[in-house]
Write a protein that binds this DNA or RNA. Sequence first.
DNA 1: GTATTATCTAAGTCT
DNA 2: TAGATAATAC
Length: 772
Amino acid sequence: MDYLDGLNESQRKAVEATEGPVMVIAGAGSGKTRVLTYRIAHLINKGVDPFNILSLTFTNKAAQEMKERIGKIVGFSEARNIWMGTFHSVFARILRSEAEKIGYPSNFTIYDTQDAKNLIKAILKEEGLDEKVYKPGLVLNRISAAKNNLLSSTAYNNNTTIQSEDRQSAKPKIGEVYKKYESRCFKSGAMDFDDLLFKTNILLRDFPDVLNKYQHRFKYILVDEYQDTNFSQYTIVKKLGAVLENVCVVGDDAQSIYGFRGADIQNILNFKNDYPDVQTYKLEQNYRSTQNIVEAANCVIKNNKDQIEKNVFTSNTEGKAIKIHRAATDNEEGKMVANLIFETQLQQQAKAKDFAILYRTNAQSRAMEEALRRKNIPYKIYGGLSFYQRKEIKDLISYFRLIINPNDEEALKRVINYPARGIGKTTLDKITIAANNYQKSMWQIITNLHRVNIGINNGAILKINDFVSMLQSFAAQITSKNAYDLANEVATTSGVLKDLYADRTPEGISRYENIQELLNGLKEFTETENEEEEDVTPRGLPEFLQDVALLTNADNEKEEDKNKVTLMTIHSAKGLEFPYVHIVGLEENLFPSQLSLTSRVDLEEERRLFYVAITRAEKELHLSFSTSRYKWGNLMFCEPSRFIEEIDEKYVEYTFTKGSRAENPVKPKNSYNSGYPSTKNDYSKPKNYSSQKKNKPPQPEHTTPKNLTKIGASTDDVSANTLNLSEGMMVNHQKFGNGVIETLENGKATINFQNIGNKQLLLKFAKLTIVK
DNA sequence: GTATTATCTAAGTCT
DNA sequence: TAGATAATAC
C-alpha cells in the first residue's frame, strides 16, 4: 500500500496498529493529522465498513478536511459514511434518533450560551436572586462544570463539598437555580452544549440495549486532541469502547489548553491505567517548523512540571531567529505588525493567507484590524461574535426554531413581541407565572388561553392569538415548502424584514443584509439537494436548523476569504499552521492572563497555550508586546510577559535596544542586537509605575505625534469642556440646541435650553460646543 | 405599552 | 468604548 510509504517509522506503526487500545503522543507538527487520516484509510482498505468507524475531532472543519483527505485515498463514497465530527455534533445526531427514550422530542432545540444565560437570568428574577451576586455567566459556568462531571441537579444539591463551596462564595442557591434550569430546559425541549454530552451519558447509562447497539456499531473509535477531553467525553469514549477496546486516542499533553472547559489532562496521562495493554507511540519529529522555533518551544514547555516525557526535534533548517518587538501602545503594536506583514509580503513573495496574528483575548483584535485595514491588507477574523449569534439572525432563527419546536421558551421570548405587536412585559410576566404554576411551557399556555383565565386582557389575548395562528400557519407548511421558501415566508409575514428595512442607518442596513445573507445561505442549502446522500429527501427547515447552534465562523468559510491574513485567538488556532506567525500582546496580566497568576495549574495551562502558539509557526515567528494598553477604558502600563524570558536568548533577536526607551519599534533593521542589558526584565519601563495601578501614565516620550493626539483625544476634549465652561455661557448641544449654563458643579451642569427648558447634563457625555 | 435616553458595567479562552 | 439594562418621556 503505497500511501504508507510517506510515513516515518513511528507514524507507520501507529497507523498499522489497528487492533486494541492505542495511544499516540504526538508532538506539535509531528504529522498527527496524517496519522489519523491514514489510519482511517487503512482501516477501510482492510475491509472495515466506514459505518463502523467513529472519529471524534475537535472542530467540524477538521472533520470535513479529514474526510476529504481520506476520500482521496479510499474514495469519497466510502469516506462520507464515516461517523466523523466533534463530540457535540456526533452525539447530537445520535441523541436525535434516541431522544424519546430519555423523554426528549427528537426535534429538541440546542441552546447556545446566550440562550442559556437568558434562561438563567429569567430564573434568577423569578427566584428573587440578585443578578449582581449570582452573575448569570458564573452560575452557568458552575452548572456547566457540574454537567461536565456528570452531576445532575439532584447530585449537585446532595453533594456536601459543592454545597459548602457555594455557601462559602455566598451563593447557596446555585443548586436551586440548577434544578430550575434543568426542568425549564426539559419543558422547552432544549439541551445546552453540555447536555449534548451529559444526556448521551444518561442514555448510555440507563439503556443497556442502546449502549450495546453503539458499542457494536462503533467498532473502531478514534479521538483526536484527547488531552482536551473532559470527564463527560471521557466517559462516553470509555463506555463505547468497553467491549472491543479498539480505541485510539491521539494527543499531546503539552497542548492541553481547555482546562477551563473541564478538560482533564489526566485523561491522557492515565490512559494506560484504563487500558493496561495499550500500545503507545510517540511522534517526536517535527516537520512543520524551523529548528529555532522548535527549540524555542521546547525551552518554554520545559518550565512545566506535569508532562509525558518526550523529545521534540526537527531536521528542518535552523531558520531565522525569533523576533521580539516592542511597541508603545496597542495601536502602535497593530501598526508595527501590519508593517511587518506588508514588508514580508513584498520581500518573500508571501501571500496574505501565509500570515496569522494570534492573541490571547478576542478584544485584542480591534487594534490589529484597524492597522491592517489602513494598510489595505485583507484579513479575516475567527471567533468573537459568530454570524449566527448576531441579534437579527438569532431573531429570525428563533422563528424557525419555534416552528419546529414551539415549546422552545427562549425562542418564544425573543420573538413574541418582535417586531413589536403589543405583547408587552406585563403580559409576558403573566404567561411566565402561569407556565410555572401549571408546569407547562409558555407555548402550551398561550395556546390554551380560552381555557384558563390568567388575567390577560382581551386586547392582549387577541394579539397573542394572532401570533399563535401565524406560527401555526408556518408550521403547517413545513413539509410542503422547502427551507428557503418557508424561511422567506417567515421573514416577510412576521414583519422582520420590514422592520429591518425601515432602519436606514448603516448598522440597520448591514442587519438587513445579514438577513439576506442568511436567506441566500438557505437557498444554497435547499438547492444542494442532498447530493451526497442516497435518499433524496428535500431539505427543509428542520434539516437546516439541526445544528446551526453548533456551527462556528470557521465552518462556513467563504471562497473570497481564502487568501487573507488570519486573526484568531490562540485557542482557535489549535491544530492549524502558518508560515508566518505573529503572537501579539505578550504582556504580564494579559498573557499570562491575570486570572491565571494565582495558581500553578492555571499558569502552566497558559504556558501550554504559549507553546501551542509558538508551534503554529513554520518559517518565521514574531513576538510582540506593548508597554501600554487600554483596559476598561484606561490606559495602563504593561510589563513584558515572563514567557519571553523563558526562551533561550540564542534563539531570539530583539528589534529594539532593551535598555533604551526611545527606539522606533517599527524599523528593525539597524536597531537590534545592540547591547543587551544585564538586568532581566529591564525593558525601559519607568519602574515606579505598576501595571496594577490605574495611574494615568506619562505620555510615552517618542511616539509619533499622530498617535499622541489619538491617545489623548477623548479625555482631552472632555477636560477642555469642563475647564473652559463657566456659568452664564451659551452652549450648543447636538440634540437640545442652544442653551445657557445655569449651574456648574462636579462634572454636572444645569443648562437652560431655549427650546426645552432646564436640563441636567453630565459633561462627560454631553458633547457641548461653546457658542459664546 | 413603546421608544428614547441615561447609567452601569464589563473584556478569558470554546462547543 | 460598547452593549445591556434601568429610567424616563411619550
